[in-house]
Design a protein around this nucleic acid. Structure first.
Lengths: 190, 190
DNA sequence: GAAATTTCTTAACATACATCAATATTTTAC
DNA sequence: GTAAAATATTGATGTATGTTAAGAAATTTC
């Protein structure tokens, strides 16, 4: 792993040379082409991924084949099916690259090894988890309380950098509406 | 804290006498009467609460005074406005007892002290957080993909023990529908 | 750079759920 | 146990969003 990437991931943490060696040994760099799937629903989610650049999407597919986007992930976000990652159950989410993306992969096993070797990383990941929890709480309240138009405006705020490069139907599946409805909302707003 | 309560909270963890003393010193037993508010939106959320018995509700109130129920909490659950608890921001959630409830309170400060004194408790709380995250992920996907009737059926599954004792309008505010709509759904199902 | 494919928009109509208003039922207070 | 208050139901009507279908626009492929 390059120094700049390590600093980007663990920004304010300082490591010894030995710790740096350990970190380098557990992260694997991955180039995911647009359309590539890095985790498939039904598989074991035995890794999580740090996004250096690009854009990822995690979504659930129901019995009828309809897709529901749980999250978009951009630079400096972590992605996986965390529910499956934590529980050991099979993934119900698929994680795909919707732009060419560069990622770092760490397996669940290596992450646990990392915790034993560099205890402060435990705290680092706990804070990430707290933030992820917080984001989900916010999302639930917005879904309960806001109209589709308000949710769309909130989406633009949440993802200002990528909003224009994400396909309409992916945004719609994130908002819980059809692509036609989103089209109408966009028209009203313009 | 009574032995039985400590075992209930930390079921499979084993503590030394000294650790037990520390635990006893940081948890405060609270009896909350039906209707009591233990955390108010706008306040600092400097504690979290373990529910021994009873039923709690966490909800958000919007500018118009409409309430949106984020969660019901029953025996063996933890409640707070975790977003506020983690970030230090003011609470946007209110936590109220909807039945007479017995709780144990632990302050944020004491919880951090507990982590330093009994490191394995850190892992215990991390797993709780993972489960809470998982529950929220599930909730988001259900809200995106299911009709009100399906969400109501899912609610009954999720809260089978308390479903009958929770007010209709509280359930409705959890499902994101009006009390009238819930009434009609119930009629259809009966 | 033209053809093929994918994505987005528009329109007509359908449906789920909201709103408003009235009444019925249950719970609480004295 | 009765009156008052709170909660739940029902009906009529409104609205946001879904569905189906067609065509327009953008992107990809060769």
């Amino acid at each position: 792993m390059e120094v700049s990437d390590r600093n980007k991931i663990f920004n304010d943490l300082v490591f010894t040379d030995e710790e740096i060696n350990i970190i380098n040994s557990v992260f694997q760099k991955i180039n995911a082409k647009k359309g590539a799937i890095i985790l498939n629903a039904g598989d074991i989610a035995d890794a999580q991924y740090y996004i250096v650049s690009g854009c990822m999407r995690t979504f659930h597919t129901d019995e009828e084949g309809k897709e529901y986007t749980l999250q978009f992930g951009i630079s400096d976000w972590w992605v996986s099916d965390y529910t499956a990652f934590f529980t050991g159950d099979k993934a119900i989410l698929t994680v795909e690259a919707i732009q060419d993306s560069t990622l770092y992969r760490i397996s669940k096993e290596d992450k646990e090894y990392l915790f034993t070797q560099i205890p402060k990383i435990d705290t680092f990941f706990r804070i990430k988890l707290e933030k992820a929890y917080t984001a989900f709480q916010k999302r639930i309240l917005i879904n309960l309380s806001k109209t589709a138009k308000q949710r769309y405006l909130n989406f633009i705020e949440t993802y200002p950098k990528i909003e224009k490069s994400i396909k309409n139907y992916h945004i719609a599946s994130y908002l819980g509406i059809t692509t036609e409805s989103l089209s109408r909302i966009r028209k009203e707003l313009s």
